[in-house]
Amino acid sequence: MDYATLLQILDSTIRLATPLLFACLAGLYSERAGIFDIGLEGKMLMAAMSSASVAFLTGSVWAGLMAGILASMLMAGIHGVASITFRGNQLISGVALNFVASGITVLVAQRLFGQGGRTPPLEGEARFNPITLPFAEELQGVPILGPLYYEVISGHSLLVYIAVLTVPLTWWILFRTRFGLRLRAVGENPAAVDTAGISVVGLRFAAVAITGILCGLAGAYMATALQAGFGREMTAGRGYIALAALIFAKWRPVAALWACLLFGFFQALALRPDVVQAVVQVKIPVPFLDALPYVLTVLVLAGFVGKAIPPRAGGEPYVKER
């Protein structure tokens, strides 16, 4: 494998890691607040459909982004009502909302565009287009680092850079602000928060809302930046991979970045079976590469890569005790 190919693979690693990172951080807020969310997939899908549709209809990617975020927050709101207000089973609620999203996105897209549940292809201002970072062109000639900067770091859409910046922002919010302290507390021991006179329900809804926003960004990125439009089931299990990355990262923001990059790298490899074959000297069937992230996730879950301890109050609805 030559350097150019490596750069290509790293470039697509970043592209593919971005939706995972948004979704993974989305899950982080929710789970740190004690609400399990396996409905990341459904929220991304809703956001992808909504953002692509609105972006196509208005011609503005920003309007599309807003629509995607709103749609995702609506789903998050339902999950919140089911699991916080009515103390329902958080896993079942997540599964249910994934189904609703899977069906309803096709229904709406079909109704709007009549193209078999897809949106028409997005062009120009209706998409997030690549940004060339300062000096990328000029530094291209510098050996090794120049092409790396030009090919891999520069030339992504705005959302990619926002995703990366969300990592330190999340760390700062969690560990340096009042909101973060309370959020972490409510995921560990809601009774402590309640007796301190803070609303458990309010905090958990706030966390779920942030999850909605970030899943909205993930879905919008899928439909308006990574690809040019929405297609049925286009998230293809990324919500679940993000969940796995969250476990892999042990619910920590910076580790989440590395986990998502790793899983993005696997996805990038699955797109280039020829490269894999050239490196390992054996023909690897594509399905095996497709399954690799899931297999690795299972290995992580099995604790062969460290022990993952989830937030203590995770998955348990809060009921005041006598």
């Binding site: 009515f86 599964v95 249910a96 229904l107």
Partner: peptide
């Protein structure tokens, strides 16, 4: 003109109401 995916939506709704919002129904 209703796409076949309608049944996925119904399936999701049934899971939601019977599995996650059962407390609401009971109340």
């Amino acid at each position: 003109k209703i796409p076949i995916e309608m049944r996925t939506v119904v399936q999701g709704l049934v899971i939601l109401f019977t599995g996650a919002l059962d407390m609401m129904v009971r109340m």
